[in-house]
Design a protein around this nucleic acid. Structure first.
Lengths: 203, 203
DNA sequence: ATAACAATTAAACAAATGATTAAATAAATG
DNA sequence: CATTTATTTAATCATTTGTTTAATTGTTAT
């Protein structure tokens, strides 16, 4: 019983993640999720109490994954500023190649739920109190890099990595690029983005 | 009658644009739109035949606005490559400061509707057969700038401009930046992005 | 002014959808 | 084995939501 319990519950959660990530909360039907999971509709409310509770669980795990990655790179005491740029682009794009819907999912859902879910994370610590931030500030003060708002760096680093996934359907359509070529382009960016960022911030 | 007809129809379309842009198709209720327009619910189906038709109209106008801007900058015969970078960042961010929801709206809706709406535009001409593209190719061949896929440039240019709007709620939340400071940051980017792009592509 | 047409409204309909129930089946326990 | 507990299912409920209808009001033209 133990095993099958976990199994069914996991099946639902996995299906919910797939459907919610792809279509967002409002466009996702509980029947879609039940079908995707291959289970009876009522089981969804048996294991989780409502569509909303199930969604919150998926959202929480997704944000967790995102911020765990950020924090582990940005708060590593053993890497330099440059190494952090390299590691972030590489690990983040790698993650998104496995789950390309994550950026769109997070951004589009947060525009509806303002800040409810966010506050459970110590995101400020992960980013703005990070070792990365300290190293950046020091590099500015020592005159090695330009004195630009740290937010610009974050927007450029995260944006350069995530935007190609967010805009993927549009870009593929207008450029006529196929799946494989687009994948190769993203692989290239793992190496190019750190170089680009460096050439942007260096004096 | 003429005047009030147009007025009511416009009221509905404006309300639809506001609601659809903010919440997307699936999360928008026809009743929301009617209320936003200050009209009776039935008038929505009287003037437009369905929620979907109304949505398509809004989507079409939004894409129109976006691609008109792109094309007018990228196909100007009287500006250089560098001037086009400057003009695009400036005009595009200016447009988005007035309607910040546009990027999120376009990207999130296109992930559901694959390519239906897109083909009505000559986007390929606006971007990949553009004067801009030709100037870029020539600059590469003459050895002035690096030989990198044109798509990287497009992703970086559009991404750097649009991503701050897409990620606005998330970034404001984790950085604790208020509305005014974020606005100033975006104003700064109108000037910074062209410089960044140049330093990325220059040899 | 009145007939014809257009615009507006309140009410209702029908389908979709999140949630619940009660019965059936499976598993665990003693 | 008998009983209790957990899981699963089919059917149903209640609400939401896009759309329609029928009546009312407003406008135009003869």
């Amino acid at each position: 019983m133990e095993l099958s319990d976990i199994s069914t519950e996991e099946k639902i959660k996995n299906a919910a993640r797939i459907v919610f990530h792809k279509k967002g909360f409002a466009a996702s039907r509980t029947r879609d999720i039940a079908e995707e999971a291959g289970i009876n509709l009522a089981l969804l409310n048996y294991y989780f109490r409502s569509k909303e509770k199930l969604f919150n669980m998926v959202m929480l795990e997704t944000l967790q994954k995102f911020f765990t990655l950020i924090s582990s790179v940005f708060n590593d005491l053993n890497t330099s500023l440059d190494e952090k740029l390299e590691k972030f682009a590489f690990n983040y794009i790698d993650l998104l190649l496995e789950e390309p819907e994550i950026p769109m999912f997070i951004m589009s859902e947060i525009r509806n739920n303002p800040k409810v879910l966010m506050q459970k994370f110590s995101m400020n610590t992960a980013v703005f109190n990070s070792v990365f931030f300290r190293q950046y500030t020091e590099a500015v003060q020592s005159g090695r890099i330009k004195d630009q708002n740290f937010l610009h760096l974050m927007l450029n680093l995260i944006g350069m990595s995530a935007f190609p996934f967010i805009a993927s359907p549009l870009i593929k359509e207008i450029s006529g690029t196929n799946e494989e070529d687009y994948f190769n382009l993203l692989e290239e960016r793992k190496w190019l983005i750190p170089e680009w960022i460096k050439s942007i911030i260096i004096k």
